[in-house]
Nucleic acid binder design. Structure first.
Length: 462
RNA sequence: GGCGACAUAGCCAAGUGGUAAGGCAGAGGUCUGCAAAAUCUCCAUCCCCGGUUCAAAUCCGGGUGUCGCCUCCA
């Protein structure tokens, strides 16, 4: 298993801290709004990381935070004229709903920042006592100069980067790179009591507290979007280094950005889509296919044409599974070496820094085998079993049964409507013998015809 | 100013030294009363220039182009 580590900018062999166990942390949302389609990409990618490790037999602890106190939430609360708690709850609930819609398996733990406030304050206090943080008039800052390793994750040299960068003047800080750990409250803002007076936590600290609480002071993989490398993850790691002398995580994984029609998604360009918007229009599984058909570290361009293309491509799997009547398969064993080789190829692809695009190509290979009329029946069934097995590792086929049954259901309805069409024609020709025969035959199948002046309808007899 | 990513067929996209996966679209064959479906086959030498090598999409150097980060951001 190799994965690309942002910290070293290279692919490395993955070696877990404890054999057979994966401690994974991926940054969740700040719940000030519905999350957008770019967030969805990250959530789906780390869902697949988690599923793949589980498939490999790892015992996975997957923690994802819900940051429910932050400037943006306060701003949103003001604009909606509501309490910040209500806003945070509203969007946290929406977040969970949307993730479920996307077929994302719930993380092992999903802690909220406001539930760990004593620990956040304790962490900041420790940093102050260790000389890595300082207070100025109710605000507490992390002292980046106190940590020689600061910048090592993102590859930034503090002195260089600040020239020309748009960094707001803050005369309170000792150094422009110093970041806020604790923020003195302004009137009307939510407050917690602290050794530095009433205030609230800055960004970055809650992730350190929550990840270490569930995963230990240093864990295996920390993930998030590429934009989080700096400053968020750099600052998280700095706190951990200052606290324990050890990095927060051994491997840092970051997914690439999502653009819309070739442009950066932004509210001002009016190309900002929430996952909720997209899910109204497209199937979650199609969205997942779209994301996984490209490597997670590459930028991805979101267009309707490409989503629709993904839908067509995905349809191949269902056609194949329908052709073997997958739901009626009794066998579960896969013994054919050719099919097992495909599984090996799938693992090789996924072991290579989660090459899901290559893995999907192997799923098509299976679909192709299933649909190839020249194959022996047994081979087709084994290929179908493997297709579902591997597809599920990527999070596909979660509603396989209803999906395949719905197809059948729709077909039945269409067939009945078709027969009713013939009967209508027969009745128009006063061919009562045929008309009655059609009605009786349908009735024998439990389908009741109701004739009315406006036409005929049908229902199933209970 | 600093840092980084990317550039593969009409489109999307894998591929880090040995002669270009897969998907969408397209073309042709089989099948077929016609059509559709199904199925089979076909469709690129990898942005440009130079270098290393028996051999490069793949390594090195130089261009060109696109995008991103350094400010809240997945």
């Amino acid at each position: 298993m190799k994965l690309y580590n942002t910290k070293t900018r290279s692919k490395e062999d993955f070696i877990p801290l404890q054999e057979g166990q994966l401690k994974l942390y991926a940054c969740g949302p700040t719940v000030y709004n519905y999350f957008h389609i770019g967030n969805a990409r990250a959530f789906i990618i780390f869902d697949v990381v988690r599923r793949y490790f589980e498939y490999l037999g790892y015992e996975v602890s997957y923690v994802q935070n819900i940051t429910d106190i932050d400037d943006k939430i306060i701003e949103q609360a003001i604009s909606e004229h509501r309490d910040f708690h209500e806003i945070a709850d509203k969007y946290a609930t929406a977040f969970l709903e949307d993730c479920a819609m996307l077929g994302i398996k719930p993380p092992t733990h999903q802690p909220r920042a406001t539930h760990v406030m004593p620990q956040i304050i304790a962490l900041i206090d420790t940093l102050v006592q260790k000389g890595h943080a300082y207070e100025v008039d109710g605000d507490v800052y992390f002292d980046t100069a106190s940590l020689p390793e600061y910048g090592s994750l993102s590859g930034k040299q503090i002195e260089d980067q600040m020239t020309g960068a748009r960094v707001a003047e803050n005369t309170q800080k000792k150094h422009p790179a110093d970041f806020t750990l604790w923020k003195k409250s302004k009137p009307g803002e939510p407050v917690w009591q602290s050794p530095w007076g009433e205030g609230r936590p800055g960004w970055h600290t809650e992730c350190v507290v929550m990840s270490q609480h569930y995963l230990g002071e240093s864990f295996d993989i920390h993930g998030g979007g590429i934009d989080l490398v700096f400053p968020h993850h750099e600052n998280e790691n700095a706190q951990a280094m200052a606290l324990t002398g050890k990095p927060l995580a051994r491997y840092w994984m970051h997914n690439g950005f999502l653009n819309i029609e070739g442009e950066k998604m932004s509210k001002s360009l009016k190309n900002f889509f929430t996952a909720r918007d997209i899910l109204e229009e497209y199937d979650a599984e199609v969205i997942r296919f779209f994301f996984l058909s490209k490597h997670y570290r590459s930028p991805i361009d979101f267009t309707r044409e490409l989503i629709e293309e993904s839908g067509k491509a995905l349809q191949n799997f269902y056609k194949a599974l329908s052709s073997v009547d997958f739901l009626s398969l009794k066998r579960t064993e896969i013994t054919l070496s050719e099919i097992l080789d495909v599984e090996k190829g799938f693992r090789d692809a996924m072991d290579d820094d989660f090459n899901s695009a290559k893995a999907i190509a192997l799923l098509f290979d299976l679909a192709h085998r299933i649909r190839d009329a020249r194959q022996e029946q047994t081979h087709r069934e084994e290929a179908a079993l493997m297709l579902v097995k591997l597809g599920k590792v990527l999070g596909f086929f979660q509603n396989l049964q209803s999906r395949l049954q719905d197809n059948m259901h729709d077909l039945s309805k269409q067939l009945i409507d078709l027969i009713l069409g013939y009967r209508k024609e027969a009745r128009a020709n006063k061919d009562w013998a045929l008309s009655d025969r059609l009605r009786d035959d349908l009735l024998a199948l439990g389908i009741v015809i109701n004739d009315s002046p406006g036409g005929s309808t049908w229902e199933l007899r209970n």
